[in-house]
Computed example of a mutant assay.
Amino acid sequence: MTEDFQFAWMVYAASTLVMLLAGWWFMRNWRWSWVRQTLLLVAAAVLLAPAKTSVAESVAVPVLPLFVYQTLFEENGAAPEVTTNLIFASGGALAIMVVWGVVSLLMRFRRDRRRRFDEDPYFNEQ
């Protein structure tokens, strides 16, 4: 990758991280923190994941901006590999958050159940 593209990637990544931090800051008081975390993780995945193109010596370009550019300005629309990269980046982020959400719900359920049992020794839910 040439020096110009490295500098462009650094600027793009830094501005994307600043935008994600600003999103986290403004959404920090939401009651459902898992929604905030899911939105920010999906946004980070589609904005920072590089697209794999069919050209052998092409420069890595972020998935979402490339998808939008190809959809709007190219005759045939977005290339299939760019669309696939976008789907897998967002789907992977959503899958990670689903697993995290299920585990945290189970842990919270067990913690509440243990707390109720400690408060009431006659509590038995079988």
Rank of each mutant, 00 (worst) to 15 (best):
V99S: 01
A93V: 09
R36G: 08
L17T: 07
A93W: 10
F7W: 06
V63I: 15
F123C: 09
S54N: 09
V55T: 13
V103D: 02
W25S: 13
K52H: 15
A44R: 04
L20K: 02
N85W: 09
G101H: 11
G92A: 09
A56R: 10
F7P: 00
Q6G: 01
W34T: 14
S15C: 12
G77C: 03
A79D: 12
M19A: 15
V46A: 03
G23L: 15
L106Q: 08
A60H: 04
G92R: 08
E81F: 05
L17D: 00
E119W: 05
N76W: 15
F67W: 14
E125F: 10
W32L: 09
A60I: 01
L72S: 09
R31V: 15
R111L: 04
M10C: 04
V55N: 07
L94F: 14
V59C: 01
M10V: 02
W30T: 04
A43G: 07
A45K: 02
R111E: 08
E75S: 13
A56C: 00
L64R: 04
F67R: 02
K52L: 14
N85S: 08
E57C: 00
L66G: 00
R110V: 08
V59R: 03
T83Q: 08
Q70H: 10
S15V: 07
L66K: 05
Y69H: 11
P121D: 00
G92L: 06
I96H: 06
M97H: 04
W30I: 06
D120R: 07
E125C: 05
A49T: 15
R108E: 08
L94N: 02
V42P: 07
A14F: 15
G23Q: 05
T83P: 00
Y69V: 05
V99C: 04
Y12E: 01
F73Y: 13
P62H: 11
L47V: 04
D120Q: 03
L105P: 00
G91L: 13
F123E: 11
T84V: 06
T71M: 13
R111W: 11
G23M: 14
A13M: 11
P80N: 07
M97D: 05
F123K: 10
E74F: 02
A22G: 09
R108T: 10
G23E: 03
A89Q: 10
A45C: 13
